[in-house]
Design a protein around this nucleic acid. Structure first.
Lengths: 345, 345
DNA sequence: TTGAAAGCGGTACCAG
DNA sequence: CTGGTACCGCTTTCAA
């Protein structure tokens, strides 16, 4: 039988109420009594019964704010599903999610929503932050006000957030290079098409790719790194130009959006089977291109897990005061080729 | 506020006890009253508070039996970790796991352990069954005695088990072929090394591989399908023989164990960089060979998830009477190459 | 600063 | 077959 607060109370010659107040630092307990209680609890290895505490606090509701982008609907819908699944598993704890979505990375609205949530008295925040000074300071301030923050999918260093849950962009860039090397027998002439060199995540994917190729001494030649602004038309035109200019190109590496544009250009020049194409993400259209053999492999970041894991970490922190045991939680890097694209598990 | 059994009791003019008995089919309720209660509950969309029921049943302990192989320690340790994590998440429900491990697929001991568990009064069974008539009948019998059975990692068709949680061996064979085709530009001459053609899972991997190559019209030539009995020495000798016999071989496909033997033979002939090798599993040694470039890719089956998912399904069934909503739960098929082998998340 | 006690929602036993 | 009731372990309010 597990230890109960009742048992601790008896051993410490106090009431259950006092035990509860002491162990949760709710205040109003004399330091000596508190210390005595904590000591006994530690010795016995006391872990509170979560079912009982959930039940006792049913009237209370705790709100967790969520601020994520809304573009690339499918992507963030997936993340939301993960968040909602975690919420469901914790349904008896009366946790309410307040989800706000901004179009693109929008500092102004992120700040606005954070303040709105603060007024509502949120108990924790999950955010995919824009990496700016203002947001960073806001997160620091929340943390100092005892409101835990977890960054999700994008991070801000030194913002004092509880932890980060997301992708390792650098490593996924390396993985893309590893795949390309396997496919092209360690020798390729390629163009890199990135959304914007200013996007940290995308530039990490480029950097990881290049460093891996160098480190492994692959025989590679990057003819160009071009920006498509994550736009399909831009992407289409640039790809067309590149493909015409470099006749012996044998690979394309796409780090962001604009995949449709790339594919359209490839098909127009009837090169879709000749050029090795590696992309990121598992948007339905991307997967279609993998299935029809236009894209050779796409590297995925388990966005669903990101939502699920981050929400669980937040809930456990708020409810059980359980600290995350890592600073960064990286979700797995999945390689999807034609054969292992499956209906979701 | 969520619906409570109290509210239903009032609406149905009965006591909470009767509501509980009716909704859980515990018997001792007249059909009319039971129907009335169920109707009201359904209309209100009643879902019992799991925290409360966990709390109420703290005294009761429910035992779930687990019977899995013990060979390839690392593999099943991983599965056990998943099982234990699920147990921890349900720790307040007083669930006890009774784990038995058999060496190899051992019908005699599986039966013995099942019977032992029955005597102890287990409430559910998770098993990686040997596919024999006796075990099949035993599972049917358990199910008929209201003891739910979930098959884990290996399945028996028509055994009336609640569901199967595991790997899609056929599809993972296809995935292996897909990778090999990418690496060898859709043209390869290979030998297949399998543990035993009698092992269902391994023969499915072979079948999936071959069918995929045919379907996609790859230019392939299988010089031999040989059995190594999952034994390293056997594996070593056979690989050596094959490599000497077929000088223009460019690929090896290993569906089971004996990977060390294959690698030893390859290294001895200094062919480790020249021949494309695809294996299964993420045993530490296998991953080492991937990292050192001897194995090009290894296909993994997320054994941890198998343990976690199956245990959760079992617990939810026993506690909340929640039926699995699929007959087969396939875990993801992961492709691991040098770059996306990461310390576990 | 502390104790006592009333719940939270469901379960199970006993009495009728 | 049904109602009443005493828990399960923790939280919170009220009173001292």
């Amino acid at each position: 039988m597990a230890i109960t607060s009742e048992q601790i109370a008896k051993l410490a010659n106090v009431s259950r109420g006092t035990v509860d107040r002491a162990l949760h630092n709710r205040g109003g307990v004399s330091p000596e009594v508190s210390a005595r209680i904590k000591k006994i609890a530690a010795e016995l290895g006391y872990t509170p019964n979560t079912a009982a505490s959930a039940l006792a606090r049913t009237k209370k509701r705790t709100t967790v704010g969520i601020i994520i982008p809304a573009n690339q609907n499918y992507f963030f819908d997936n993340m939301k599903s993960g968040l909602l699944l975690a919420q469901e598993e914790f349904s008896n704890y009366g946790i309410q999610l307040e989800i706000f979505q901004t179009y693109g990375l929008d500092e102004y609205n992120q700040l606005k929503y954070i303040e709105e949530l603060e007024k509502k008295g949120m108990n924790g925040l999950l955010i995919s932050p824009v990496n700016t000074e203002k947001i960073k300071n806001k997160i620091i301030q929340l943390t100092e006000n005892k409101i835990p923050v977890i960054t999700l999918n994008s991070d801000i260093e030194k913002s004092k957030r509880l932890c980060y849950v997301g992708h390792d962009y650098y490593q996924s860039g390396k993985t893309a290079e590893g795949m390309m090397a396997l496919i092209n027998n360690r020798k390729f002439k390629l163009a890199i098409i990135t959304g914007s060199t200013k996007s940290l995540s995308q530039s990490q994917r480029v950097e990881g790719f290049i460093n891996n190729a160098k480190k492994r001494s692959h025989d590679f030649d990057i003819v160009e790194i071009c920006e498509n602004n994550d736009d399909d038309i831009d992407s289409y035109l640039q790809t067309l130009r590149i493909l015409k200019e470099y006749k012996d190109l044998n690979a394309l590496y796409i780090t962001g959006s604009g995949i449709y544009g790339v594919v359209k250009a490839l098909k127009e020049l009837k090169l879709e089977r000749k050029i090795c194409v590696i992309t990121f993400g598992d948007l339905p259209r991307t997967l279609e291109y993998v299935i029809e053999d236009t894209i050779d492999a796409t590297i995925c970041q388990n966005v669903f897990d990101q939502g699920y894991v981050s929400a669980k970490l937040m809930f456990n922190y708020i409810i059980k005061n359980e600290y995350p045991n890592k600073d960064k939680y990286y979700t797995k890097i999945d390689i999807r080729i034609k054969e292992n694209i499956l209906p979701n598990y």
